[in-house]
Design a protein around this nucleic acid. Structure first.
Length: 539
RNA sequence: GUCCCCGUAGUUCAAUGGAUAGAACGAGAGACUUCUAAUCCCUUAAUGCAGGUUCGAUUCCUGCCGGGGGCACCA
């Protein structure tokens, strides 16, 4: 119902003018309010009150009869709208009619568009870090949102399964068994030692080729990574192997050729450099070391080229905090390669807090807490929700104490409990549902007209926000909006549940409210799907 | 030193340049013979400092002060 109002104002203001249209509650500011008059005032060079007056006149003419029940100018030029009860009731019908598709919107510039979304992409040299997990959830939900907006999204995990770090992993394993001497740069988590112990005979056999050994181990680590991701509902369409799909296909070489063609390659101090400073980087970057090894950066350029060659004009890459310094160089490469729209999102670090103190190390093993350990401790829904409640720009402090609470204080359960309550009413009303199903057209309309209590309409108002939030998030990627919305929606439902009864009410009211419960179930389900949360039937 | 992110109730976080800055946890008070009280209702308290742009700044710009991260011929 917001959309209709938005379109009316858009028509008057002009398509490209930006304005706010906020949904409020049932206060003196109306169900919705807009600052559109300020925009009009600026455009026409008139005062905001004058503009507001003009806008009101034109909106009243443009709006369909019976849509707006009240329209008021407030403050320095805000317009407050009250929508007629019938509009709320119609929205409830729209939700039920669209079902799974409620919240699927067509966004210009996204609908039908092929987008590659790369995330996690952690090196398979050990378990996932918390930051990896954060990127995983962000990517997963962002992918859902972009798809809801009509885009065709490929979720890609780029696997660095070759090169220096794989060699180092192989050597680290040998060192763990004392076959070679330990060095500073080696990986030394318990997982290295564990793997080495479990595969002792193999390690001994492969002692002379550490690189092959590293590959072998990393394949195992990747398997574990995939398992953990799967257990948290993070899935990928494609695991792109650096070795097989990029290096073996000479894509880094092709990228190099491209760079040379643009005249941006030069040699200095025995190494080959790319002049990324020409594209906004703060220093030039090495493509080939003086020993003749291609750098990770060159391989990554090859990877970007591969993406482009497979028909993507848009790529979004989610990186962890350790890759901050990498952004401008990869953007420079993307630009040279001709990947038209390349975006990079960098997530900030994750820290775990318990009882007011930061727990840096895992208690059981003397190293950083890994993603799988935290998943095991609090469960996939909780970690997902907590990670997604905060903007990626802020350092995330994970409140382990709160996360472990199974009950009242935990916002995840609060949200799911609202769904469970709705479910419970719905299940109990088996007989009534049959009759409800037969209500159609005017009869249904008449029945729904008894949805007029504040709690009824407040619930519909919150339900109706969902599509607009999808549209907004597809543009600004602020997926944390949904966790917060989930809590608000749950609140609206709990409120409805406490104030109004469904079962046992007179027929008219019963059917109307049951219908509203159905609408709520639709939005909750769609929202949970989008967020990747489970929708429990019982708690 | 330089680049990036952050600085908002006691704490953890919200707020596409908009009106009276929202939640959660914490603290305090109240509500179950009724569809699951894992709930609802009420109270409490905040924009680091100094300028600037604007009808309007938590938001944009400059400087300062704090916290985190990046600055490899590693990935």
């Amino acid at each position: 119902m917001v959309e209709k109002l938005r379109r009316i104002i858009e028509e008057i203001l002009g398509r490209d003018e930006k304005f706010d249209l906020e949904s409020g509650e049932f206060t003196e500011r109306g169900h919705f309010s807009t600052n559109a008059a300020f925009v009009l005032a600026k455009k026409k060079g008139i005062s905001p009150p004058e503009a507001a007056e003009e806008l009101r006149r034109r909106i009243e003419i443009a709006a369909p009869a019976g849509f707006i029940s009240r329209l008021r100018i407030a403050g320095p030029g805000f317009l407050n709208f009250w929508l007629a009860p019938a509009v709320f009731q119609a929205e409830a019908r729209e939700i039920v009619r669209l079902g799974k598709n409620y919240g699927r919107v067509k966004i210009k510039g996204l609908a039908g568009r092929k987008i590659q979304l790369e995330f996690v992409s952690a090196n398979p040299t050990g378990p996932l870090t918390l930051a990896n997990g954060r990127g995983g959830f962000l990517g997963d939900v962002l992918g859902n949102v972009l798809e809801a907006a009509g885009a065709r999204v490929e979720r890609e995990y780029y696997v660095n399964d070759t090169g220096n770090q794989i060699l180092t992993l192989g050597k680290s394993i040998l060192a763990a068994l004392g076959i070679i001497e330990h060095e500073e740069t080696f990986y030394q988590g318990d997982y290295v030692k564990d793997w080495a112990e479990r595969n002792k005979p193999l390690v001994k056999k492969m002692a002379s080729s550490p690189e092959k050994l590293g590959e072998r181990a990393s394949a195992d680590f990747l398997k574990d990574i995939k398992l953990v991701l799967k257990s948290t509902g993070v899935v990928f369409d494609r695991y792109t192997s650096e070795k097989k799909q990029v290096a073996a296909k000479k894509l880094p070489d092709q990228a190099m050729t491209l760079f040379k063609k643009k005249g941006l390659v030069y040699e200095s101090e025995g190494a080959v450099w790319l002049k990324t400073t020409a594209l906004g980087d703060d220093k030039d970057r090495v493509l080939v070391t003086k020993d003749g090894h291609p750098t990770y950066f060159l391989d990554d350029a090859g990877h970007y080229l591969e993406t482009k060659k497979r028909g993507f004009a848009k790529k979004i890459n989610i990186l962890g905090p350790d890759h901050y310094g990498y952004v401008s160089r990869i953007q420079a490469a993307a630009s040279i390669i001709g990947l038209k729209e390349s975006e990079v999102i960098v997530t900030q670090a994750v820290r775990v807090m318990e009882d007011g103190v930061e727990t840096k190390m895992s208690k059981r093993r003397g190293r950083f807490i890994t993603f799988d350990e935290l998943v095991e401790e609090v469960g996939p829904d909780v970690i997902r929700f907590f990670f997604l409640t905060v903007s990626p720009d802020t350092h995330l402090i994970f409140d382990l104490e709160l996360a472990k609470k199974k009950a009242n204080d935990n916002p995840v359960y609060y949200t799911q409990y609202a769904y469970v309550r709705a479910r419970s009413v719905w299940e109990k009303a088996k007989k009534e549902r049959m009759k409800l199903k037969n209500l159609k057209g005017d009869a249904l309309k008449k029945t729904l007209s008894s949805l007029e209590s504040p709690a009824d309409r407040k619930l519909i108002l919150y339900l109706s926000r969902f599509p607009e939030l999808v549209a907004l998030t597809a543009k600004d990627y602020g997926v944390h909006r949904f966790s917060r919305y989930a809590e608000e929606l749950a609140r609206a439902f709990h409120n409805f549940y406490e104030r109004e009864r469904v079962l046992g009410e007179p027929e008219e009211t019963l059917f109307a409210r049951l219908y509203l419960v159905q609408a709520a179930l639709v939005v909750f389900k769609n929202l949970f799907d989008l967020l990747g949360l489970s929708a429990p039937e019982k708690m």
